[in-house]
Amino acid sequence: MSRFKTPLPLSAALLLSFAAAHATVRTETGLTESRAGASETYRLNVPTEKAVATTQVRLVVPPGVTLTRFQVLPGFTRSVARNADGLITEVTWRGRIAPEEYARFFFQARNPAQPGEVAWKVYQTYADGSVVAWDDTDPGQGPASKITLR
């Protein structure tokens, strides 16, 4: 008696691979939930989905989230934009993620004090100059990652 399940139809398998492949922000352990007001380690997972390398990743920090530190990722340089209060509003990593590879960028942040949902917008630039916006603005591109704060 086999414990293997029947394979998914090709259309369902393609849909699942697309849904799982986009740039995502999750907690360090892979969750889409965290506690309001808590300090959390997050990971931004960025796969290269084209035949050319990813050369830049820009993360827009959701309102109310305070970034506090970053894990060093060899081969990448990091720059930040700050608002008038000195809080980080955007992070840009420059480097190379080859086709069929992915990178994980870890950072620590303090969540907003109020429960709700925060949306992480990510802009992925490829070596050919194209930009994929993971920000909910264009249905043809991709959704922003969302974390629910309880």
Results as ranks from 00 to 15, higher is better:
S130T: 15
F18V: 07
V118W: 00
D136R: 03
W120F: 15
A23I: 00
Q108T: 08
D128R: 07
W93H: 11
Q114W: 06
K146H: 08
R110H: 07
T125C: 05
I147R: 05
L73S: 10
P143H: 11
E40Q: 08
D138W: 01
T137M: 12
D138G: 13
P63Y: 07
P9M: 03
V132E: 12
D138E: 10
P47F: 01
A98T: 07
G116F: 03
A36S: 11
P7F: 03
E40L: 04
P62M: 02
A53K: 05
V52W: 02
G37R: 01
D136T: 07
V61P: 08
W120K: 04
L15M: 12
V118A: 12
F18H: 08
Q114E: 15
L16Q: 10
L67Y: 09
L10G: 05
L73M: 07
T148K: 13
L16H: 06
A133T: 05
G37W: 02
G129N: 06
S145E: 00
F106D: 05
I147V: 13
P9A: 09
G95A: 06
A13K: 03
E100D: 13
S11V: 13
W134A: 15
D85H: 13
R58S: 15
V60I: 14
G116L: 03
L31Y: 05
V118G: 04
T66P: 01
T55S: 09
R58D: 06
V61W: 01
D85M: 11
G37D: 01
E28Y: 10
T125L: 11
E100H: 12
Q71K: 12
K121S: 13
G37V: 02
Q141D: 14
L8N: 02
W120Y: 14
T148M: 09
T41M: 10
T48L: 00
W120D: 04
Y123E: 14
L16E: 07
S17L: 10
G64S: 06
R69M: 06
G116K: 05
T29I: 03
A81F: 05
A51P: 01
F106S: 09
G140T: 14
A81M: 12
T92Y: 03
Y126G: 07
D136Q: 09
G37S: 03
T148W: 06
P99E: 03
P143F: 10
A81Q: 15
P74E: 06
V131K: 02
P139C: 06
A133G: 09
T92K: 09
R110A: 08
A133S: 12
Q56Y: 02
A12K: 06
K5Q: 11
P9T: 09
V72G: 05
Y42M: 13
E28I: 08
T137F: 11
A23K: 00
P143Q: 14
F107P: 01
P74Y: 01
S145V: 02
W93P: 08
Q108K: 10
R26Y: 00
T77D: 13
T29H: 04
F106N: 08
D128M: 09
R82I: 15
V72R: 10
A38Y: 02
L8P: 01
R69Y: 09
E90G: 04
Q141G: 10
N83S: 14
V131M: 04
D138P: 11
S130V: 13
G86H: 09
N111P: 02
I97W: 00
L44V: 00
D138S: 15
T41G: 03
S11Q: 14
A51F: 08
